[in-house]
Every structure is written in C-alpha cells, then in structure tokens.
Design a protein around this nucleic acid. Structure first.
Length: 873
RNA sequence: GCCUGGAUGGCGGAAUCGGCAGACGCAGCGGACUUAAAAUCCGCAGACCGCAAGGUCGUGGGGGUUCAAGUCCCCCUCCGGGCACCA
C-alpha cells in the first residue's frame, strides 16, 4: 500500500481548524516589539507621583549560560515587577553583571581568549537568553562591574575608606586557595574548602594584605538585624551566628619568672594535679598573658592556662627549649590539618606543658602553662584559662593529662536528701544558674552577679575588664589576580602608602596581560602598570598589583542602577533617597553571609561617609529554594542539568517560566519534571484557543443569568485569591492553579455559552480579566491575547483587576454534617442561612436521620458556614 | 552537639484562622473523534472490604488536648540546610 494524500484533510473538525498556540511564533514577535520600546520597562524619575517599588534580583556571574536557578529567580522577580506595574507603581527593575572573577582568567588560559572579550561575549549571550525569557528589565541602567565606568567607583570608595582608616594593610595569616592562586576572605571558606572549588582545601599563608574594617560595624550589623523584619528568620540567624558576639571578661595573668627549659621530671610535674601555692610578687616577670573568658565566675576553678600553638609567648618559650619547639611544631601541624579538613571540632586534644607558670590574679595561685591544639590563635586572645570542672573541652583535656578538676560552682537547691549536703553535680557542670563556692570573697554569689562583680574587681585592680569579642573578622579584600578592580594605591620609597588622586581614577586594568597559573599577581609582571609616579613627591612609585575581591563589586551595585551612566559620582543622591531601601530583593540563600553581610556593611560605610541616609539597603529579602532534578541539585557533575534554552525551544518561555512558578512555592526546593512543563504548556494552549474562540464576544449589558453569575463568581474569587497572594504569601503555584480552575470553569460553561445562557458582556469581561491575571506569569501569551481581544493601551499599564466581593460571594454552600465527628452527609443550604435553618437542613437529611436513629443528641456543634456536628450517645 | 526547614496518593504539590484531607498539574486507566496515530475532548482515579448501597482505615511513628487535629502540646525516627573545640 502506498502512502497517499489524506483525503479527509479538507474535512477537519472546527477545533482542528482553530489557531494553534505556537510560542515559537508569538514570542520572538513580542520580543522584537518590546526591544523597540525601551521606555516600557523604564523607571520614572523621582518626581513621579506614583508610589515607587524597587524590585531586585541578584545579578548573575556571566558564565555564558543561564541555569534553571536563574530562571526561577527571575521568574519570581518578573512576576512581581509586572504585578506592581499593573498596580500603578513606579517600578525599578534593573539587571547587571557581576563580571569580574576567576572563571574569565581560567577561560583565558584554556582558550587563549582575553578575559574581557570572553566576559563581554558571555554577557551578550546571557542577555539574549534573558530577553528570550521576556524579562522586564530596564536595560538603560545596566551595570557591568568589569567596565571602568563602574569599577572606578570601587576605587573611589576604597580611597574614601583608606582616608577614614577603614581600609588598611596588615600582615596576617590568610586563606589561600591553590586553585584560585589567590587569597580568600573568611566568608569564602566553607568548612575549610574553597567556595568555588568544593574539593580544594584552603591553606594558611602569611601575607600582607588589604583589609576593610567591617568589625567596626560588628555591633551595628548585629543590632540592625532586629530591624530587618522583612528578612527570613533563617538568614538573620545565620548572620547573627557569623558575627558571633560574645560577652565576657579579659583577665591578665602574670607570667612567673621561672627556670628555662624544664627537666623531663619537671615536665611531668606540670601534668600533676597539684596547684602550687601562692608566689611572691617579686617572682613576676612583668610579662602578662591575656585570657578571654565568658565564665569569669569559674576562675577560681582554673587549674591551668592554655595557649594556642602559634601564640607569640609559645615561640618565646620554644626558643630556648628544643623539645618544646618540636612538640609545638607538631601541635601546629595537627591544628592546620584539622582546620584544612574542616573538622577542627573533632580532632583529638593534644597538649604539652611548657615548664612555665602563670599567676591567677584572683587566687594568687600559680598555674602551669600548657600549649594545646584546641586553642585558636584568632579567637579572643589566643589563650584561655582552663576550668576542667565547668567546661567540656577543658574537662576532656584535664582527664587526658591528669590535671586537677576543681568544682567552684554548684546548682542552686540541690541538697542531697540522704546526706543533707549539696549534691555533687555531674561533671563538667556548665549551667548558668548556679552559685559560687571555693571562690574566696565571691563565695555564695549567683554566677551572673559574680561575673559582674569579678569583672569590676579586675578592672579596679587593673588586671582585666569586661569585654566583647566578635567572631567576625575584618574583610580581606586583596586578590592576587588579574581580572578584578585594581586597588588604587601606590608605594613610594619616600612617602610610603599613597592613594591614587581622584582625578587620576580610574586606575585602568591593562589589556594584553599574560594570564598564567603562576603565583603572584599577573599585574606585577606588567612594568608599565607597576611603575608609576608618586603624586606627593613626584618620585618613582610602585603600584599595588593586587585587585579587589569581587564581592566589593556586588556590595553596592544596586545603588548604581539608579544612575548607571553618571560619570561625576557613583550615584545620584536624590535618586537614592527616593528609591531606597530596595523594596524586595530576591535570590538564593547561599549568599546569606557573603554578599548580604558585605552589602549591609557597605551601606553603613557609605552612610558614615555622608553619602546616603539609609542604614540598610534591603527592606524585604526573599530566598528562593533550589532547583532539584532526580533528587539532587542540578549540577554538571551530577549530569542532571536541564538547559533553559532547550525548554524554551520546546515549550516556549511562558511555559518554562510558568512551570518554574507552578511546580512548588517559591521558597521551597523545586523538583524539575519535564512532563510538568508540558502540562503547563498544554494549559497555556487551552487558554490561547479558548480566548481566540470567544474573542468576538463583546459589548452589551451584563445580564444576570445564573450561568453568568456562576462565571463571575469564579472570576472574582480568582482575582481575590491571586491579589492576596501577591501581597505577601507569594504562593504563585496556587495562583496558577487558580487560573487553571477558572479556565476549567470556562470550558465547562461552553455548552451554556452556546445556548446563549451566558451574557456576552460577562464572557468578555471574564476573558479580559483572565488575560490580565495571566500577565505576571505568562507575559508573551497575555500580550498576544490582549491584542486579540482588542485590549486598549499597554497591558503592563492596565490596572490589575479588582475583586468584587459581592460578585465573588457564593449564594448556596455545602455544609458537611458529622455525627460524633465522622462525616455522614453534606447538605446544601443558602450561604446566609441562620443557625436554625442550618440545623433543620442537617436534621432533614436522610442519611443523618438514619445515623441519629435511636441515639440521643447530647451536644450540637454548629459553626456557621462551616459545619454541623451532632454529638450523640 | 547546637540552630533551622521538611516528611501528605504512583509523582510535584493543595488545605492561608482547629472544621469535607488530597485543590491544580503530571503519570495511569476507560471512552469519543481518527483507517490509524498524534493532537484535542469527556470520564475514572488514596488504600482496603463490598455486585452495590455503604463501611473501615488513612497526612513519618507513639502519646495527649478537643465535639473535631495534616494543623495545637509532649516524646521519637528519618531527610535537607546552616553553624560548630569561638573559650
């Protein structure tokens, strides 16, 4: 049998002849139209009398490819922006590129493409993808951080900070990632691993680096978390932990003037439990060991002093004690390994007695000084008093080395009923609510009171004071890389560190720099860059060759959006005053303590420079969930990546975006199922065909037929539901489900429409509002259909439909009727039926009659409009 | 270890204030249209018992409060995320 032409083609059914939803035809057409009217998505000036709304999504790194996480992020932001426009706001919805960073250098090495070229072509590609998605960005204020018109202001800020002492240079132990071949900030080290290279352990190196004094703001950053009630609790807690404020007391212990290296026998003595008696002041060396403790109330229980292996005093001790030196080296090694492996909390505790003693200023006792691998140099003072009875770590250590355990606090009211004496607590005993014993003049005090009195005592006697310690460290911003903002500093033999004068900014990043994996800044190998003139003395100067951490770029980019083209200032203060704070910021939770803490710091710094008025950049923060496929996060290494381009090609941008919103509430993880995208696409297709089919139904007065009323009811219920959700809950998945229900209702009403039971005007209104409701979620289709039904004016500026409560109201409702809490029947009654009517209707029901047969009703629960429950015996 | 989010049909999820558990969608099954298929449309669909009417069970597990619990309280299990010798 040969294949022949289809004879029935001419006789296709009316539905087959209907226009087919074809996103690959609709979407490019509208893209072009939107591209031709950039004012469509433009912000209006501050003089606008509309309420402002600044909606911001985190700017991407231009890797060259959008991934589904981006699509989800932008779909959420875009829906909100479009809704806000329709609600009559002046919307700022900008986008930009976090365009400096290491991948560009790696690409340069791999493909021999200059970083700038690689980055700019990636930006062009991703911008095309964004445009295909139909995102409503105001590209006129695009920010690209790798361009001099942006990074010059990084340099400008840096110099302002230098002038204020907020940017400074110091030598210190820093995190070094061998793969990045550069230093990392503390925030960029995740459990000892590099934040960009999940398998790369970070090393510690001693380097001289630039730091920003974020610790000046530690307290304010902490306090103001309280103001951020539009932020997820989770993020606030994470920042709070990161800042890590702890209140305590710093106490100075005198160093005893003791012998040099101890004999082996004496080394053993330090391990003994005996705390040696009071020593005269004449034996003091004048040297002090500062110790930080949050539990000064337990200081009489201290039985040793423990130093971090890298504590300067340890170096001193070790200088004249070879045996100690070698043991310390091994302790340092252990600590380094543990830190690098990210399990510093799990290594076995090791320590060694130094042969030296310190004097407890409260008790006058001499305590052996030990070095231990669990003491961190960079927290507190790098030294602790060890109180084994009341600290878990000290207890573990003391047990191992046989140090004395002395109880100095007891729980309140724990008299042993048999002996009539205080019961000994289980050790280590660390409770806050306790009483002091064996503590000299401080006996019987409650621990909280004791802490206050002891701190005051220490201060009075001059050997200590109450202090606050933060875990947060200053932000190391130097990077030994090429593709970043040059740090605008000069080193002059005569004048020392000199900032580049403002009128010489920007310090341009030179092109044609050989990028290699060698250590040291690539810029250091460019003599034209390095050799400069000192602006003070006119003599030769060397230029700083490190560049800035790229988190500097993203710390203030959202200010630049309000006046991205300004070449006189980083931004326009009036515009900032109008637009800030950002009304809604949307992004992944992975930046909770990186970008989001730096940004808060930067804002406070700018405020203190007198540049802006606001204390915080972001009013409301939303952190979306991850995109999951087959049970794990989409990633190249897992091979479960779904390409947005692929989805768009197959189902269209509208379906792809709408699915990203439909499959889960935005704050939860989203399971990507391609069949689901197909389902959403089918839904859009139904809408398309339905609206086209009835686009001609217009005009006339609304007639109040039952079918019309039913349609209006569903419509206004849908409007109300979606409007409420936009106001805060953001469960767009149920919004889209509600629109699907509305469309199902419309489809089911087709016979009634055909029978003329639905008034044309009502049908027309319903279609019109349906198109408007769909606009935030499927903008292409909405615009197409808006035109089809003869919508006047720009869809984006058309007011969002208003729910009419009286139309939304049901006139008859179904009430569940229970007997003893079990559902037995459902009765249909008028929505405004009173209690008696409701009860009578329930009693009249046959099934209820049967269920109540022979029983005695002891109680009647009647919740108006909700339910009836007969409690029977 | 501490903090946090979660666990609901075969799957994604819904139930916003303690009041009909499973909206909406996917996959599945049956039917219409078609020579056939695709597309589309209509219908069924938590589990178990039953021809049916109907009944019993059911929101990770155990207890409790209540006329009524996915929802509130107590205890526990598992999964995800964050922090972790921070003195």
């Amino acid at each position: 049998m040969s294949v022949s032409q289809n004879p029935s083609e001419a006789a296709t059914s009316p539905q087959e002849r209907e226009a087919r939803y074809n996103p690959s035809e609709i979407e490019p057409r509208w893209q072009q139209r939107w591209a031709e009217q950039p004012e469509l998505y433009a912000m209006e000036p501050a003089s606008s009398n509309k309420p402002k709304y600044y909606v911001l999504e985190m700017l991407p790194y231009p890797s060259g490819q959008l991934h589904m996480g981006h699509v989800r992020n932008y779909a959420i932001g875009d829906a909100l922006a479009r809704y806000m426009w329709m609600q009559g706001h002046n919307v700022l919805h900008p986008m930009g590129w976090d365009a400096f960073g290491l991948p560009a250098e790696n690409a340069a090495i791999k493909n021999n493409t200059p970083p700038r070229e690689w980055t700019l072509s990636n930006i062009a590609a991703m911008k095309r993808q964004m445009d295909r998605l139909g995102l409503s960005y105001d590209w006129r204020n695009e920010v690209t951080t790798c361009l001099p018109d942006y990074y010059r202001w990084n340099q400008w800020f840096f110099i302002r900070m230098f002038e204020k002492g907020l940017a400074y240079r110091k030598k210190s132990k820093v995190n070094w990632c061998p793969q990045c071949a550069t230093v990392l900030a503390n925030e960029q080290v995740i459990n000892g691993y590099c934040w960009r290279h999940e398998d790369q352990l970070v090393e510690q190196r001693d380097l001289e680096q630039w730091f920003l004094r974020i610790t000046n703001y530690a307290q304010e950053l902490l306090d103001d978390l309280g103001k951020l009630d539009g932020w997820p609790e989770k993020v606030r807690t994470m920042q709070q932990n990161w800042i890590g404020r702890s209140e305590g007391t710093e106490v100075e212990f005198d160093l005893e003037d003791s012998a040099s290296a101890p004999e082996d026998e004496e080394r053993e003595r330090g391990k003994g439990t005996e705390v040696l008696p009071f020593l005269e002041t004449s034996k003091k060396t004048g040297k002090k060991i500062a110790v930080f403790t949050t539990r000064v109330d337990t200081i009489f229980g201290a039985t040793s002093v423990q130093l971090a292996p890298e504590h300067p005093l340890v170096k001193e001790f070790a200088a004249s004690d070879e045996k100690l030196a070698s043991e310390v080296t091994s302790l340092i090694e252990q600590q380094k390994k543990a830190r690098e492996a990210g399990d510093i909390g799990e290594i076995e505790k090791h320590g060694v007695f130094t042969g030296h003693y310190a004097i407890n200023p409260f008790s006058g006792e001499r305590l052996p000084i030990w070095v231990a691998n669990y003491i961190l140099l960079d927290y507190g003072t790098g030294a602790i008093m060890s109180v084994p009875a009341h600290d878990e770590r000290d207890y573990e250590f003391a047990k191992k080395y046989g140090l004395e355990v002395r109880i100095v606090i007891l729980p309140r009211r724990t008299i042993d009923p048999e002996t009539g004496k205080d019961a000994e607590p289980m050790l280590p005993y660390t409770a806050e609510d306790s009483l002091l014993i064996n503590s000299g003049d401080f006996n019987t005090l409650g621990n909280e009171e004791a802490q206050k009195k002891m701190a005051a005592f220490a201060e009075e006697k001059g050997f200590g004071k109450a202090t606050v310690t933060f875990r947060l460290k200053d932000w190391g911003v130097s990077r030994q890389r090429y593709w970043g903002t040059p740090i605008p500093m000069l080193y002059c033999e005569k004048d020392g560190i000199v900032p580049v004068p403002d009128d010489q900014l920007p310090v341009l990043l030179p092109d044609n720099v050989a990028i290699t994996q060698e250590n040291g800044s690539p810029l250091g190998r460019v003599p034209e860059f390095v050799n400069a003139t000192c602006p003070k003395c006119g003599g030769p100067a060397r230029r700083e060759t490190d560049t800035m951490d790229t988190f500097v770029d993203s710390s203030w980019y959202f200010y630049r959006y309000t006046s991205a083209k300004d070449d006189k200032a980083p931004y326009d203060s009036d515009a900032i005053a109008y637009w800030f704070p950002i009304d809604q910021y949307i992004g992944g939770v992975e930046h909770a303590i990186l970008h989001l803490i730096y940004s808060r710091f930067w804002t406070k710094m700018m405020r203190d420079l007198g540049l802006i008025k606001n204390d915080e950049p972001v009013q409301r923060l939303f952190t979306q969930g991850m995109v999951i496929k087959d049970g794990s996060k989409m990633s190249k290494s897992k091979g479960n990546v779904v390409s947005p381009d692929d989805m768009i090609a197959r189902y269209g941008a509208d379906a792809t975006r709408a699915y990203a919103l439909f499959a889960a509430p935005p704050d939860r993880d989203l399971d990507w199922q391609e069949d689901g995208v197909a389902g959403v696409s089918r839904f859009l297709s139904r809408v398309y065909r339905f609206v086209n089919r009835y686009a001609g139904y217009t005009g006339g007065a609304a007639q109040s037929t039952p079918a019309s009323q039913a349609l209006q009811r569903k419509l206004h219920q849908t409007i109300a539901k979606i409007t409420i959700d936009f106001s805060g809950r953001w469960h767009f998945n149920t919004c889209i489900a509600a629109i699907m229900e509305l469309v199902n209702t419309l489809t089911a009403a087709e016979p009634a429409i055909a029978a003329g039971e639905v008034s044309d005007a009502v049908l027309a209104d319903t279609l019109r509002d349906l198109v408007l409701l769909l606009a935030p979620f499927a903008p292409y289709l909405s615009c197409e259909l808006w035109e089809k039904i003869g919508g006047q004016g720009e869809l984006l500026r058309t007011p969002w439909p208003k729910a009419d409560e009286s139309l939304a109201k049901e006139d008859a409702i179904e009430i569940p009727v229970q007997v003893n809490g079990k559902l037995r029947s459902v009765v249909r009654i008028a929505a405004d039926a009173d209690q008696d009517t409701t009860r009578d209707a329930a009693l009249a029901d046959e099934k209820i009659k049967a269920a109540l047969e022979g029983k005695q009703v002891v109680k009647l629960i009647l919740v108006p409009g909700k339910l009836v429950n007969f409690v029977v015996k």
